[in-house]
Every structure is written in structure tokens, then in C-alpha cells.
Design a protein around this nucleic acid. Structure first.
Length: 437
RNA sequence: GUGGUCAUAGCUCAGUUGGCAGAGCAUCGGAUUGUGGUUCCGAGUGUCGUGGGUUCGAGCCCCACUCUCCACCCCA
């Protein structure tokens, strides 16, 4: 008999993983709610016409296509699995524009699928947690996303650095070095600065058709140092001839000013090598990196001025970011930052010596559950060793032992599994004890 | 999509020139019929990833496929 298996790049999540994942999702969700974001969901599959051409040539290749039973293998399929949450969201806005109150603040936590070759931290099915504000050009939206990043990672206890850049600045740089049509090649190459270093970036720029003169003019910009303000001031001089570049600098300046005024504790840097792959970004772009773990970015996003334009609704500006839940999971695991008691774990197990005791325990359990205590009753009066082992394996902090003596005195023997201490308690005493623990 | 790498018990892994399939952990039972996490004793477990080939004989050698992991491409 063949062992069962799951498709390449997919995973099962066991009870411990799910409890951790739910901790991640609920933390993110509750921060989103603090800012008035509302949740939506869209279908796992979209029409291919919605998906195709939105992610570049590479992206199209990574789309999972859904074969209808009537379709032949060489026919173009009608449907595919969604590749991200942003494009389906743009489709949603266009389709529901008359029902939506703008500015629309929505969040969406759902899996996405990519037919990529899997690696560590890279899967074919993974979750994104997207939060976007649509229908306003105000940079207050960007500020709020920065604040959300600050609060989410403060709650997780992960030390991060937020990298900021602006696509208009990048466009201005391309203009300044005399290669405005090479903006995509430039961004793709300089985005790798971290990984491959300046020399290799320059090599790649040359391979992508940039002249030595252009590459030379780029060097002082890539080497800009000092504070964020220093960099902006320097850019203002260098890009003085580029109207687009100056607008990008203005946006960045305004956002930094607002961040400063908002008493933000987050570590933030203007990173001119930050480009981000998706080409629909037009303004500020963001990326969050964990300081204590080598794992790539764990959150990213930016402003897109015309995302819904491709679906026939022009001039709707939006800005959004996406938290990478699977990578946050890896960071929390590596740094061992999960809270000691997970929110939904069992608090108390009843262990019994006989059938009458079982009924007694079930009655007590019902009362405690009505008061909100999470209780399990071991379903048979098995050997005490077995019942205790069960509690131990599930890390249940308290076991209430019920035998003849306890039944006679209308009590239970409560064992604290961590200290080993035992005390005989009435129902009310038991409730107080669990509640105050 | 390109190049490399890996696969043996539930898990982590040993396995000699090609000659009876192994260990630790975990699980289950007992020592202990009212007590887990520490101790002691005992037990079970495998189409050696799948399919073909070479050989008297293959976990080991050869071919193909699948999967894992890694580097590209790209990306969370």
C-alpha cells in the first residue's frame, strides 16, 4: 500500500502549529481592527482573464491553472488559483464600487498559490495578511500603515527595521542618469544590493544594457549615507531637474515628518536600494526586515495609483501592505517568542476512578464551561497514570482527580501539574483557582 | 523554468567490497489496582520513496520518475 502524501510545496498544520498560527492571525487581526479595517474574502479561484498579465511575464508562469473536466490539456483554462490578494481586491472594488464607502479600509487573510519551486520559507500555498486603504491620496494612509507595522511587531516582540523608499524617487534617478526607460531593469538590479553587493549590482546593470556613464552617475546615489533627512536633502540637489523625483522626495519628506510627529518608536530607514518586484507600485514602498533573524522581508507593500485602471476604473489610488504569516511563524519559532500559555488551550482535565466519578466530573465540567473555563473530561476511568500522562502531553496545567472520597465530600483533588501540589477544593474554590491562575 | 542535492521504523539517523534490516528517541505494556514530567524491565514496528535494469544474490551498482533541501530566476 502506498503511503499517502500531499502535493509538493504544501503542508499540514498540526494542533500546536495551528494554535501558533491562530495567535499570529488574531494578533494581526486585532491591530487591523484598531484602525477600523473591515475584513473581506474573495474566491480561491479567479478567471484567468483577471489574473493574466498582472504580475509580469514571470508571474504568469507561476499561476496555477484549473482544468475543467471538459477542457483539453492544450486549451487555455478558464480559471486559476489566486496569486496574491491585491489583484482580486482590485477586481472586487471595480465590481462592487457602488456598495463601497470610500476611503475603503479592508483587510483580507487568505491563502494564495504560486507554482514556484519550493525552498525553505517558500511554499506553493501560503497565507497573506493584506491591509489596504483605497480611494485617498493622503499620506496619512501611509502613516497609519507604519503605525500598524509598529504595533503588530511590538505585540509579537520581534525587533524589526522598516525600509522605506519611493518609486517616484527611483524614476527620478533613472531620469537623472539618462535611462528613464530602464527603470524596471534598474530597480530589479539595485534591489539585490543586500545580497550580492555593489560590484555585482553594477555588473548586472551593465548586462541589462545601462551605459557606463549612467552606472557612474548612479554610484554617488547608491553610496548616500547619513540620516534619512541627510539623504533627502542630498537627493533634492541631485534630482533637481526631475519633476517626478522631486515629487517623490516631497512625499517621503511629508511621511517622515508625520512619522516624527506621531512619536513612533519604530526603527525606520530610507533605503534607496529598496525597489520591490511588483511593478504596479507608484509611490511610497515599504519592506520590513527582522533584525535578529536572517529570513528576507516579513512584510511589504506600497502605494499604487492606478491598480483598478486595468479593470476599467481609473484614478483610484490605494496603499497597502501584506504581512507574511508563514515567515512571521518562522521568526517567532526561531526566537522562541510565543506566549507561555496559548489563548485557546485546555485549562483543566478531570481524571476519574470509576463510572460514577465520571458522571460527577461531567456535571462539574458543565458548570465550569458555563463560566467560560476550557475543560476536558478524560472519557473513561482509565489508569491514573494514563490520564495524567495525557494531561502532561497536552500541557494541561491542572488536573482535577475524582474518586470516592472526593465525591463524598463534594470536592475534587486539584493537582497543579507544574508544582505537583495537590489541594482538595469545592466547585467554587476550583473555579476561583483556575480563573486567577 | 535552469543547475545541484536528498530519500532506510512514527521522528532523527547508522548500515563495511553487493551476503539474515539496525540504534536512539517516541509509542504501547509492566514494576506501582489513587498520580504525569525523573528511574527500571519488556514489546511491536519496515514492500529500505516509486518503477524498471545488472547480479546466484541489491538498502548499497545503473536508468527513469516522484519528493526534500539548496543556489539561480522570481518572491512572502
Amino acid at each position: 500500500m502506498n503511503k499517502p502524501n500531499i502535493p509538493k510545496g504544501t503542508r499540514d498544520f498540526g494542533p500546536i502549529e495551528m494554535s501558533r498560527r491562530n495567535y499570529i492571525f488574531s494578533t494581526i487581526r486585532s491591530v487591523f481592527a484598531l484602525y477600523g479595517f473591515q475584513q473581506i474574502e474573495t474566491p480561491s479561484m479567479e478567471l484567468m482573464s483577471t489574473l493574466m498579465g498582472k504580475y509580469g511575464e514571470e508571474g504568469d508562469k507561476l499561476l496555477f491553472r484549473i482544468q475543467n473536466s471538459g477542457e483539453k490539456a492544450n486549451e487555455a483554462p478558464e480559471k486559476g488559483l489566486r496569486y496574491d490578494l491585491t489583484v482580486p481586491f482590485a477586481r472586487y472594488i471595480v465590481q462592487h464600487r457602488d456598495e463601497i464607502q470610500f476611503p475603503f479600509r479592508r483587510y483580507q487573510i487568505q491563502p494564495v498559490w504560486r507554482a514556484d519551486r519550493p525552498q525553505k520559507g517558500r511554499y506553493r500555498e501560503f497565507y497573506q495578511c493584506d491591509v489596504d486603504i483605497i480611494g485617498t491620496d493622503s499620506l496619512v494612509s501611509e502613516l497609519e500603515l507604519v503605525q500598524i507595522v509598529e504595533e503588530v511587531y511590538r505585540r509579537f516582540g520581534i525587533r524589526v527595521c522598516l525600509h522605506l523608499n519611493n518609486r517616484k524617487i527611483l524614476a527620478g534617478i533613472a531620469e537623472y542618469i539618462g535611462a528613464p526607460d530602464k527603470i524596471v531593469d534598474i530597480t530589479v538590479a539595485i534591489d539585490k544590493m543586500d545580497k550580492i553587493g555593489l560590484d555585482n549590482v553594477n555588473k548586472e546593470l551593465a548586462e541589462r544594457g545601462l551605459s557606463q556613464d549612467a552606472i557612474g552617475k548612479l554610484q554617488p546615489i547608491l553610496n548616500l549615507g547619513g540620516s534619512n533627512t541627510d539623504k533627502l536633502n542630498a537627493l533634492r540637489t541631485i534630482l533637481a531637474c526631475s519633476e517626478t523625483g522631486l515629487r517623490g522626495i516631497g512625499e517621503a519628506q511629508e511621511l517622515f515628518d508625520r512619522i516624527a510627529a506621531s512619536n513612533c518608536q519604530l526603527s525606520i530607514c530610507l533605503d534607496l536600494t529598496l525597489a520591490r518586484g511588483l511593478n504596479y507600485y507608484t509611490g511610497m514602498i515599504f519592506e520590513v526586515k527582522a533584525l535578529d533573524v536572517q529570513i528576507g522581508s516579513i512584510t511589504g507593500g506600497g502605494r499604487y495609483d492606478n491598480l483598478t485602471g486595468i479593470f476599467g476604473l481609473p484614478n483610484v489610488s490605494g496603499v497597502g501592505i501584506s504581512f507574511g504569516a508563514d515567515r512571521i511563524y518562522d521568526v517567532l519559532t526561531e526566537l522562541d517568542l510565543y506566549p507561555a500559555t496559548m489563548p485557546e488551550a485546555t485549562q483543566l482535565l478531570f481524571a476519574t476512578f470509576g463510572d460514577e466519578e465520571l458522571n460527577y466530573a461531567l456535571t462539574w465540567a458543565k458548570s465550569l464551561r458555563q463560566k467560560g473555563i476550557r475543560v476536558e473530561v478524560y472519557p473513561e476511568p482509565a489508569k491514573m497514570k494514563k490520564q495524567m500522562s495525557y494531561a502532561d502531553a497536552k500541557a494541561i496545567p491542572f488536573v482535577a482527580i475524582v474518586g470516592g472520597n472526593e465525591m463524598q465530600s463534594d470536592t475534587v483533588m486539584l493537582k497543579d501539574m507544574q508544582s505537583g501540589e495537590q489541594t482538595q477544593l469545592t466547585l467554587n474554590q476550583l473555579f476561583d483557582k483556575i480563573l486567577t491562575n
